[in-house]
Design a protein around this nucleic acid. Sequence first.
DNA 1: AAAGTTGTCAACCGCGGGGTA
DNA 2: GTACCCCGCGGTTGACAACTT
Length: 322
Amino acid sequence: MGRSPCCDERGLKKGPWTPEEDQKLINYIRKHGHGSWRALPKEAGLNRCGKSCRLRWTNYLRPDIKRGNFTAEEDQTIINLHSLLGNKWSSIAGHLPGRTDNEIKNYWNTHIRKKLLQMGIDPVTHRPRTDLNVLAALPQLLAAANFNNLLTLNQNIHLDATSVAKAHLLHSMIQVLNNNNTSSSSFDIHGTNNNIFDQSSILENRPNISENLYDPIQNLPHNDHQPLDSFFSPIGVFSHQDDQDMIPPLISASSDESKQPQMMIKNKEVLKHSDHTSNPSSTSTFTQDHQPWCDIIDDEASDSYWKEIIEQTCSEPWPFLG
DNA sequence: AAAGTTGTCAACCGCGGGGTA
DNA sequence: GTACCCCGCGGTTGACAACTT
């Protein structure tokens, strides 16, 4: 496999672009398109390598680039996609119109990564951190788990399935952590049994859950009568009887989105094309087409914690589907 | 006010995939 | 099948800004 020699050539300018260079590049691409990036700088009268030109165009000069802060929705999309795709920034960028891979990568490293760490979530694996540092930082973890921004359910916000699943999982994690403050029977902070969402582990801890003084997720009063094993079912976990203050169900009770907060399950096509507006039906719910979580996972998804969970839940029969 | 520290982000670097002769 | 070329990706760097001491 040969290497491009273009960047080895001497005398080519590096570093920040000047407005004049930008203008030359814009003018040339407007007239001729970029064509061969390698040939472009010479033809456009730029003393740069093609690589540099391509980067400048795709990351900065392209007319369809969206400027400004990331919205909460974009944040969530990035986190969701990263949990499925890992550091596939270009793939993630493909689902965020107007955002570049470089921008998303920078944003992840400077903002989201820190947020997740503060929440006690490993930004690489998307697993809860179970090391001693996290336990030491438990107060911050609990505070961070106050998902007011994420789970203000009475507002007109469409939460996607992954967000809610994560919220529940974090909720569970904190419960386990709390329990282990009083009983260290089943939680191994040294990592030999570091899957703290292991059902048996949760169930072992269950008798103490109702004694927890702190429920980290506001608006989510813990229903101690709810079977915890249902926590791991994409159906059962959200099937509270009193749903007024609960996380919205995965199954919409009505197809009319405007009537209530509703879990919007993004299917593969939606993730691929983001065609929300022109084709509302492409955003499906379980009731509409029984789209299992497994199908949400794109082929390009890496093996992530969430993927494991989703696959596990999909491997089991869903009672409501019959 | 100055020095030091931390945060941000544009740009670079090197690698690997894919196309082609 | 191999070598070469181009392109795009992900990781990293470094300049500048903002903040803290």
